[in-house]
C-alpha cells in the first residue's frame, strides 16, 4: 500500500508518518512539500520530495506512482499579506486543490483524507454554540482572506459527493490543533510568556492535541466512512482559563484597541491575521457528534485542558 502525503514537512504530518510506520511496518509513504525536507523522520519505505506545487509536478508524481491513499494536509499560512503571496495562496488553494483532486480521480485512488479547518465556519457574533457539519461556511463573509480555506473545503466536499461510490473521502474540520511539534499561530500565541487577551469579551475555545489529530488522520483512512467530520474534544475553556493552564500572562486590552495595535504591527510585518483577532471576540465551538457516532465517545486521548497542559512540555 502506497500513501501520498501532501504537506509532509509539517509537524502534524510527521507525527502521522510515525503512527503509520509503527502500525503498518510494510507501508510505503511518499511525502511531498514545497518546504525543505531535511531533518524529517526517516525509516525504510519513507521517501520525501521537495517540489513546487505545480500541475506538471503533480502529474509526474501520479504518472510514476500508484497511490492507494492521499492525505491532503497542505495549506499556506495566512500571516503574510503581500499581494503576491495572497495570489499565490489563492492559486494553490483553488486551482492547486482542483488539480490534485482531478488527478486523484483519474489515477483511481481508494482513499482521500482532506484536512480542512474549523476556521471555515468563522468567528461571528451570531454563531450558535456547537456548530454542526451542516452549518454554512461563513468565514469569508467577514474575512475575504479566508476565501481560500472555504473554497478548498467546498471543492473537496463537492468532489467527495461526486465520487461517493468510487473513492472513500473523509473531510476533517478540526478545532485549534496545538502541541510541541506543530508550528501554528495558536500554539505560538499560547506558548509565549505574555499574550494579548480581550478585556471586553470572553470567548471559549476548544483545543486538540497534535497527537490526537494525527491519530484521527490515521484512523480516517481505516475506520471513517465518506463524510465531513468536525474534530474537537467535549470540553472547552475560556481564554482566561487557557492562559492559566499554559501559564501565559495575559495582557488585557479592549478588542477595539487590538485592531489598532494589529494595524501598527502590520506595518512591521509582525501582525496576527485579522480573522484570528475575531476569535478573541466570539466563540466558535464545534460539535463532535458525527465523529463520535463512528469512533465512539472516547475517540480522543487528550481533553482540551490536557492539550493545553502539554503545550509547555517543549
Amino acid at each position: 500500500m502506497k500513501i501520498l502525503i501532501i504537506g509532509a514537512s509539517g509537524g502534524l504530518a510527521q507525527i502521522l508518518i510515525q503512527i503509520l510506520k509503527s502500525n503498518e511496518p510494510d507501508i510505503q509513504v511518499l511525502g511531498i512539500d514545497n518546504r525543505s525536507c531535511e531533518n524529517l523522520f526517516r525509516a525504510p519505505g519513507i521517501e520525501y520530495i521537495q517540489m513546487k506545487y505545480t500541475r506538471g509536478n503533480f502529474e509526474n508524481l501520479f504518472r510514476h506512482h500508484e497511490f492507494n491513499t492521499v492525505y491532503h494536509l497542505a495549506r499556506q499560512t495566512h500571516t503574510s499579506h503581500t499581494n503576491s503571496i495572497i495570489t499565490q495562496r489563492m492559486d494553490f488553494a483553488m486551482l492547486g486543490t482542483a488539480r490534485i483532486l482531478e488527478l486523484c480521480e483519474l489515477s483511481g485512488i481508494q482513499n482521500l483524507v482532506f484536512l480542512s479547518t474549523f476556521h471555515v465556519y468563522g468567528a461571528l457574533s451570531d454563531n450558535p454554540v456547537f456548530i454542526s457539519e451542516n452549518a454554512p461556511l461563513r468565514a469569508s463573509l467577514q474575512f475575504p482572506e479566508l476565501r481560500d480555506v472555504v473554497e478548498m473545503d467546498q471543492l473537496c466536499e463537492a468532489w467527495m459527493w461526486k465520487n461517493q461510490g468510487k473513492i472513500k473521502t473523509v473531510l476533517l474540520r478540526p478545532c485549534n490543533i496545538i502541541g510541541t511539534q506543530v508550528n501554528n499561530t495558536m500554539t505560538r500565541y499560547l506558548s509565549g510568556p505574555i499574550s494579548v487577551s480581550p478585556m471586553d469579551y470572553s470567548p471559549h475555545f476548544q483545543f486538540l492535541h497534535e497527537f490526537d489529530m494525527a491519530n484521527i488522520l490515521y484512523r480516517s483512512m481505516k475506520e471513517l466512512p465518506t463524510g465531513i467530520y468536525n474534530i474537537a474534544a467535549d470540553d472547552f475553556v475560556s481564554l482566561e482559563e487557557a492562559f492559566k493552564i499554559t501559564k501565559t500572562r495575559p495582557l488585557r486590552i479592549p478588542m477595539s484597541m487590538a485592531a489598532i495595535l494589529n494595524y501598527g504591527l502590520k506595518q512591521v510585518k509582525l501582525d496576527l491575521p485579522d480573522y484570528l483577532i475575531s476569535y478573541l471576540r466570539y466563540s466558535c465551538l464545534i460539535s463532535n457528534g458525527a465523529i463520535k457516532k463512528v469512533l465512539g465517545d472516547n475517540f480522543l486521548r487528550f481533553s482540551t485542558r490536557d492539550a493545553l497542559g502539554a503545550i509547555r512540555l517543549k
Binding site: S125, Y201, S202
Partner: peptide, 15 residues
C-alpha cells in the same frame, strides 16, 4: 444578535 456584538455588555450578560 446585536447585543452579542457589544463589548463588556456581551461579556457580563453571558456571565
Amino acid at each position: 444578535k446585536f447585543m452579542a456584538t457589544l463589548p463588556f455588555i456581551n461579556k457580563y450578560a453571558s456571565a
